[in-house]
């Protein structure tokens, strides 16, 4: 069943058009990867879905409801959570407070503090520390946990491997199956194609604000992906 249906989505930063008629979909329980070079419009796309960038109302339909251009704080309450690029933890809040604030929208569901600590045990040890005192990987865990606390039906992850050592990226990606097992659909945006291919059921490749390629990773060849990614 379709959870998210995006049709002909466009987005602008002032006079600059960043996205040109994106068609995109996520099924219930599916993990979808979005890859593409720097500046291809991946982050803009996620920000538009999360309500941070104005879009046409009908261009985003989530769980049967048109939510394009809805205010960001309402989008979360409907069950669509974004792990923003660069983690964006609240520096004046502790680890635990960062997680608790994720539950501000008050959606019921399987995720609560103890469940997050079970998923990322290291965070339980560091719960009283200021969030910004953690290592990059641990901060990323807080950012993911914080988004999960809103019990989303769809979790959007923007470049969660950015700036992290490969071994730590592996740790973080290891958490995705556990999240998926709760029935949460996931969209991961990555520049790291290998990582994305392993985790995803389906893949979209963005190029200059348009979708250049779509398909299941197993059905796509390296050459196809390289062409769609670099456009050469």
């Amino acid at each position: 069943m379709t959870l998210l249906a995006v049709r002909q989505l466009t987005a602008h930063y002032g006079d600059f058009q960043a996205l040109f008629g994106i068609d995109f979909g996520v099924a219930e329980g599916e993990t979808v990867a979005v890859i593409g070079a720097n500046g291809a419009g991946k982050s803009t796309f996620l920000r538009a879905l999360a309500g941070l960038i104005a879009t046409a109302r009908d261009s985003v339909v989530f769980a049967g409801r048109a939510i394009g251009g809805e205010l960001a704080h309402r989008v979360v309450a409907l069950g669509l959570a974004l792990v923003p690029e660069g983690r964006r933890l609240f520096p004046s809040l502790t680890v635990e407070e960062n997680l608790l604030i994720g539950a501000y929208a008050g959606r019921p569901g399987p995720w609560h503090l103890e469940r997050i600590y079970a998923l990322f045990p290291i965070l339980a040890e560091r719960r009283k520390l200021q969030a910004t005192m953690l290592s990059g990987g641990q901060q990323q865990m807080v950012a993911i946990g914080r988004a999960l606390m809103s019990n989303p039906r769809l979790l959007l992850c923007d470049e969660i491997s950015l700036g992290l050592a490969p071994v730590i990226v592996k740790d973080i990606y290891a958490a995705l199956p556990g999240i998926k097992a709760e029935g949460t659909s996931i969209v991961v945006v990555e520049q790291d194609v290998g990582q994305a291919l392993q985790a995803a059921d389906r893949l979209y490749c963005f190029q200059e604000g348009r979708i250049a390629l779509e398909g299941a990773p197993r059905q796509l060849t390296r050459e196809q992906i390289a062409l769609a990614y670099f456009g050469v």
Partner: peptide, 8 residues
């Protein structure tokens, strides 16, 4: 901005 993403 991030506060909005938390439903605030």
């Amino acid at each position: 901005e991030t506060a909005q993403l938390m439903g605030i």
